[in-house]
Design a protein around this nucleic acid. Structure first.
Length: 637
RNA sequence: GCCGCGGUAGCUCAGGGGUAGAGCAACCGAUUCGUAAUCGGUAGGGCGUGGGUUCAAAUCCCUCCCGCGGCACCA
């Protein structure tokens, strides 16, 4: 007998062994039909897997959050089964559930084509139709390896061979398909339902290592209900509309062209936006006790050798040789140049912390496949700063920077920001002792502040550990924006010192930090975040004065000039077009304000104010409108 | 960098061996019309690049460039 305790606290005795499916049937036919899997003592459990001892048991149905992952995982298996049926020579490798869906990596000689994708999806639907039972089996390890080898599934055999010794080898069988899998799974393929779709083909390296062979990855999306699938597909369409590359063109902000891959041509409106952000950051940094400098973009090779960049970062650097046969590099980072300013004269401990900002444009030769609109470019401007401080000051300076970043992000409506902590990479400079110290300080500051963060082993900068502040684009892709790195290595490499209280010279701790990170990337994120509807203070064109008839032209010009005098970026549209046409056009251009000037307004000294996205108009006296708008257009303090 | 897909007018896209197409935008007229498209007309293309196959290439094959989606990279 086993005693099964249900979530409501009631306990029932059963003849052992009993399966969750038995329990569900006993509770009621509705539940038996709805159950997808179970939880036994907190562990996810197949519906037909026997329970042989007393346990707490709960059933998972489509309404539970766990259902989504089960469905996606099953979708991956059904896809693998479909592929094996259609292309028996293809080997299966791994196929997990992921955010919004699933994928499966296959090994085969020829890549899949988009046609194959359709065939596979059609076969998947047949397999769902067949409603094959999905059965869990535990196999002997050596036996499992032999069996998969015999099946020609060499990748699976390798995966089993590398499983921990004590791990049970479980396989799942559905129809003629057998797959190594931890489970759990739905009781049969029919339970997957219809709410799935294969979405894209991609290459992916075996074990995520580019020195390994490339597998063929098929991505799909899967949901519990068809309604959810439709919503998701609809969301993707919406995301396409807020793609910053599209908005950049539509709003006439910037462009790229072949001659400068990964480098932005900023148009007047885009550059206006760019500069509003710089203005904002300058103001904030000034208030936070920063000075600002500017350093050369092209510096002699010897400096990069001294800093360690030439060796550690050289593959990403643009270099230039001049007629005098000197070798230069275009700066990929601002730090070595910045340190030269620090080194001028003698710095006392009394001068620390010294916070020095630079809006530095850097060039990095990024792999061609990494380029992505404004998000990943080869030439970009950082809102960089270096804080030189003592070891005693380092933790509090770190905390200030973290606070600063999060506070800045709030001004743009980013409330919950993902933070990642990255420690020493393989390719690095400096001793392990120094790294211990730096990692401890950075982590300590973060822990003391109580922020959640993800741990990113081995992803730090070559000179120090780092915090990454991550924002998401319209499609949910993560981009590192702000960053904070602590560094004791560059001051040594570049011989930057200060005179301490003891009269001796010491190396300062150097904090590298950027809040926006890259202005380019941040603008890309902002455009997608706001779907192009920038807040008034950032909009390149804040308003357009649109006339209804040419009788109002003079008045419209008066309004425009008055706006400009109040610092508002306002243009006029005197074209001989209908007001509906002008409203439509400027609305598409995402202009936040349309000030309509017709005969009435001209006669009474009013403006009819129409806000982007609004249906209503507001009639205001010109002066009143100017006061209101000037106030609304003020940047965050 | 790797795998797949793509590049035709300013934009969005048809055409896929036999004389380059549409809508929007642009330009020129007319229209003075109160809140998301007024009407008519005109002009605009080395079909990404270089090579090859062919009587004939936007179309088929190869090279390279750029872009898109992933992977790897990511300071």
């Amino acid at each position: 007998m086993v005693a099964i305790t249900l979530p409501d606290g009631s306990t029932q005795n059963y003849e052992a062994p009993v399966t969750p499916a038995d329990v569900a049937r006993q509770i009621g036919p509705g539940l038996a039909k709805a159950a997808l899997a179970a939880k036994v003592n907190g562990e996810e459990w197949d519906l037909n897997r026997p329970v042989d001892r007393d346990a707490h048991l709960s059933l998972i149905t489509a309404r539970d959050p766990e259902a989504m992952e089960l469905i996606r995982h099953d979708a991956a298996h059904v896809m693998a089964e479909a592929v094996k049926e259609l292309y028996p020579e293809t080997q299966v490798t791994i196929g997990p559930a992921i955010e919004n869906g699933f994928y499966y990596d296959f090994a085969r000689d020829a890549p899949f084509t988009p046609d194959d994708l359709e065939k596979i999806e059609a076969r998947m639907r047949e397999i769902v139709e067949r409603d094959e039972p999905i059965q869990r089996e535990e196999w002997d390890r050596q036996e499992a390896i032999r069996t998969f080898e015999a099946m020609g599934e060499h990748y699976k055999a390798r995966i089993i061979a590398e499983l921990p010794e004590d791990a049970p080898v479980t396989v799942y069988r559905q129809g003629g398909f057998v797959d190594l899998c931890r489970g759990p799974h739905l009781p049969s393929t029919g339970r997957l339902g219809k709410a799935f779709r294969l979405t894209k083909l991609a290459g992916a390296y075996w074990r995520g290592d580019s020195s390994n062979e490339m597998l063929q990855r098929v991505y799909g999306t899967a949901w519990v209900t068809e309604r959810q699938l439709e919503d998701y597909l609809h969301m993707l369409e919406e995301a396409e509309r807020r793609d910053h590359r599209r908005l950049g063109r539509e709003m006439d902000l910037f462009h790229f062209q072949e001659e400068a891959p990964g480098a932005v041509f900023w148009h007047p409106k885009g550059w206006t936006l760019f500069n509003r952000l710089v203005d904002y950051m300058r103001r904030r940094q000034d208030a936070a006790g920063y000075d600002e400098i500017s350093t050369p973009e092209v510096l002699d090779r010897s400096l990069w050798e001294a800093s360690g960049h030439w060796e550690t970062f050289g593959e990403n650097m643009y270099t230039a040789t001049t007629a005098d046969e000197r070798a230069f590099a275009i700066k990929p980072m601002n730090c070595p140049g910045g340190v030269q300013v620090f080194k001028q004269g003698i710095t006392s401990y009394r001068d620390l912390p010294m916070r020095v900002a630079e809006f530095g444009k850097v060039h990095r030769y990024e792999p061609s496949g990494a380029l992505h609109g404004l998000m990943r470019v080869r030439a970009f401007t950082q809102d960089d700063a270096h804080i030189y401080c003592t070891e005693a000051q380092m933790e509090s300076e770190c905390r200030e920077v973290v606070d600063f970043i999060l506070d800045v992000y709030k001004d743009f409506g980013f409330e919950d920001v993902h933070i990642k902590f990255s420690d020493r990479p393989d390719k690095r400079i400096g001793s392990d002792e120094i790294w211990d110290q730096l990692e401890g300080a950075l982590k300590g500051a973060l822990d003391a502040m109580g922020h959640d963060y993800a741990y990113n082993p081995g992803e730090g900068a070559f000179y120090g550990p780092k915090l990454e502040f991550v924002l998401r684009d319209a499609l949910g892709r993560d981009w590192q924006c702000g960053t904070l790195q602590v560094d004791l290595n560059l001051p040594r490499r570049l011989d930057a010192t200060y005179v301490g209280e003891d009269g001796e010279s010491h190396y300062p701790v150097m904090l590298h930090r950027a809040l926006f990170g890259s202005l380019e990337r941040f603008i890309g994120i902002l455009l997608e975040h706001y779907a192009g509807n920038l807040p008034l203070w950032l909009a390149p064109v804040q308003g357009v004065v649109a006339t209804i008839t040419s009788d109002a032209n003079d008045y419209a010009e008066t309004v425009r000039r008055a706006c400009r005098e109040r610092g508002l970026r306002v243009q006029s549209d005197l074209r001989n077009e209908k007001i509906t046409y002008k409203v439509r056009e400027h609305s598409h251009a995402k202009v936040p304000l349309i000030l309509v000037a017709g005969r009435d307004e001209a006669a009474k000294g009013n403006v009819a104010l129409r806000r982007l996205g609004g249906r209503e108009q507001e009639i205001l006296a010109l002066n009143e409108a100017l006061d209101t708008l000037a106030r609304e257009a003020a940047p965050p303090a």
